[in-house]
Every structure is written in structure tokens, then in C-alpha cells.
């Protein structure tokens, strides 16, 4: 996805997380990517995508299979253009920090995101700047989500690692060490997360 691309609009919001709808079906930001939103024009909220879903617009109506006679999946959509109106893609974001007075803080913001606010993917430079501090890891580990913190943490670090280029290995090692300190009481959880980073860490 393009750097800094607008990926959605906030449709639900509270202090700890918000949900956003994509303008186009399936144009979802990857799991664990860093995105930003606002609570007013000056302040920026940062969060990581922890869930993405595509479902029917109406809560009660579930999609019906339509492709029995179609040769491939794309044909299903071509034959049923109304699908683009009946389905929507949404993603949920866990808030992990904000920018105020020029400094990035990695704790909960004073106010939640604005409904109908635009959600942008953070640029490579923004991701790098945000990840200079690893305090957000503690935050992530303490969150209670359906997805499971190990998965989310690993996904987040993998996404962040991408902007580091040749320094990716060093970044992942230092993130790993921070995790080792935080998870000194739970070695198994640490190992699970590190296993998710192993392949990306091959220098």
C-alpha cells in the first residue's frame, strides 16, 4: 500500500480503540500496521490494526454463495455488481500513542478519535520515528483482545521492521530484548512471539 495512504473513515471510537470502514472493499491495511487518526486538527492518534473484517452491511443478513456456475472468483464479483454495495470492509485499531507538542507519547491519549475522521497509513518516516521508543510493547502485551497479544505483537513488529531496511535485524533484536525484559516471568509467551519474528530476523 502506498505510504501515507488514506485507508478508511472512523465509524466507532472510544479511548482505547476505534473502528474504521474502508472506502473500497478489501483495501484493508495489513494486520499490525501503524495508522493514525485525529481527535482535533492538531493532535494525532497512533494505533495498530488488530482486526480486519468484511461482512454484509445489514447485521442480520449473511452473504449467500453465488459462484457455483462461475469459472473463477473475480467472475462472481463481475456478475454481481451489487455486492460492492452490500458488503463492506472494516478494520479495528488499538490506540497505542499520540503526538502532542511535537513529542510522541506511548500511552493513551486524552481524547478518542473523531467519528468520520480519516485514517491514514503512517509513512515509513513516521513508523521509524514512532518505533524509536519501545514502550508501546508493554502496552500491547497488557491489552485484552480476541486476537491474542502474541499474534498482534509479532505482527506489529514485523510491519515496523519493514521500514528499517538493512537495520531490520538490529531493530528486531532490540525489540526482542525489550520483550525479554517485560516477559521475564513468562518464557513461553516470549518464545511464541519470537518465533513469529524469526523469519523476518534472518539478517
Amino acid at each position: 500500500m502506498e505510504d501515507g495512504l488514506r485507508v478508511g473513515e472512523v465509524i466507532e471510537s472510544c479511548t482505547t480503540d476505534f473502528a474504521a470502514q474502508c472506502y473500497e472493499l478489501y483495501q484493508l491495511p495489513p494486520l499490525g500496521s501503524l495508522v493514525k487518526a485525529h481527535w482535533d486538527s492538531a493532535a494525532i492518534l497512533y494505533g495498530v490494526v488488530y482486526k480486519a473484517a468484511t461482512a454484509g452491511i445489514e447485521p442480520g443478513r449473511r452473504p449467500i454463495a453465488r459462484g457455483q456456475d462461475e469459472p473463477n472468483e473475480d467472475e462472481v464479483y463481475r456478475s454481481n455488481p451489487q455486492l460492492l454495495k452490500l458488503l463492506r470492509s472494516e478494520f479495528s485499531v488499538l490506540v497505542i500513542g499520540y503526538l502532542e507538542e511535537g513529542r510522541i507519547r506511548q500511552y493513551l491519549p486524552p481524547k478518542p478519535a473523531r467519528i468520520h475522521g480519516f485514517v491514514h497509513l503512517c509513512t515509513a518516516a513516521e513508523v521509524k520515528q514512532f518505533s524509536q521508543s519501545l514502550d508501546f510493547l508493554n502496552f500491547l502485551l497488557k491489552s485484552r483482545l480476541d486476537i491474542g497479544v502474541e499474534e498482534l505483537t509479532a505482527a506489529t513488529l514485523r510491519q515496523m521492521g519493514k521500514v528499517y531496511g538493512v537495520e531490520k535485524h538490529a531493530f528486531l533484536v532490540s525489540a526482542g530484548k525489550e520483550l525479554a525484559t517485560l516477559l521475564s516471568a513468562d518464557y513461553n509467551q516470549l518464545k511464541t512471539i519470537l518465533k513469529g519474528l524469526k523469519n523476518d530476523a534472518i539478517a
Partner: peptide, 26 residues
């Protein structure tokens, strides 16, 4: 070691990333 469980399943040469992360902390 910080946690004795590390000794139960030690990170050996086949897991250099794990060993590198643990070194100095765990």
C-alpha cells in the same frame, strides 16, 4: 538465567535469533 524454564528448552545453534535476543537479558 532469569527463568529456569529456559534451561528446559535451551536455545541452541539452530535458533540464533532466540539466543541473540535472550543474551544479556534472560
Amino acid at each position: 538465567v532469569v527463568d529456569q524454564r529456559i534451561n528446559v528448552t535451551p536455545a541452541d545453534a539452530s535458533e540464533p535469533f532466540l539466543a541473540e535476543v535472550l543474551s544479556g537479558i534472560s
